[in-house]
Amino acid sequence: MTVQSQLNSPFLYLLCGSIILFIALVSLFFLIRAYKAGKAMGLDTAKMKRAITASATFTLLPSVGILLGVIALSGSLGVPWPWLRLSVIGALHYETQVATAAAERVGLGGLSASSMTAQAFVTICLLMSLCIMWGMVFSSLFNKRYLRRLNQGSKKGGGVPGFGDKAMTAMFIGLICAYLGSYLGGFISGGGLFSFGGSWLPLAVVLAASLAMAGFLWLSEKKKLVWVESFSIAGSMLLAMACAVLLGKLQ
């Protein structure tokens, strides 16, 4: 039995599948609890259902992108482990980097199916878990205290009243700016300082998605098609990704 066939064995599917099932049940439990609590607190069920629908449609396309991450890692780590990592705790942009770095630390010289050994594999798995678990550790240790302190701060008027919500929106704007800046920087200096030789495709995709979003918001706000808003992100992404397919041929 080769190492690769061992990494794809039914036992590993069963083990990883069971952990994923546990997380799915936890998510379902939190979903039902929140819905019932919202209802008991008198929140509008139609709006809660809208939040659920919007989140489901929003998630579909990025999930397919994550599936590609599973496929990418499956060549060297088998299918079950990347399936577990990317379903549960990991993030697409972290896992590949950590797995590659971990492979180098165990002496493989990079993620490679041909040089993978059983011991290297389990050590990489352990390192991946050790490296990307700290959000969960901090969350379980300090979430309660941290959120309580934040709430007390806003109640005591530690800042200008009503700023908390705007701060969160600003933080999110900052997040978007960092990514857009990286695409612009990648295009301008990606192929050498001010060479304008980097890839322009991410910028074109950003533009296409923005235009599509403008269209969806116009339909929602001006034409009063409110239901469109729930699908606006997913729709914009789909159109922008379709543009990427068309424009990709020009690159």
Partner: peptide, 14 residues
């Protein structure tokens, strides 16, 4: 380009 598509749409909105 999933992430640029996501942040492009969000950028316009915000």
């Amino acid at each position: 380009n999933v992430v640029p598509a996501l942040f492009g749409a969000m950028a316009y909105k915000y």
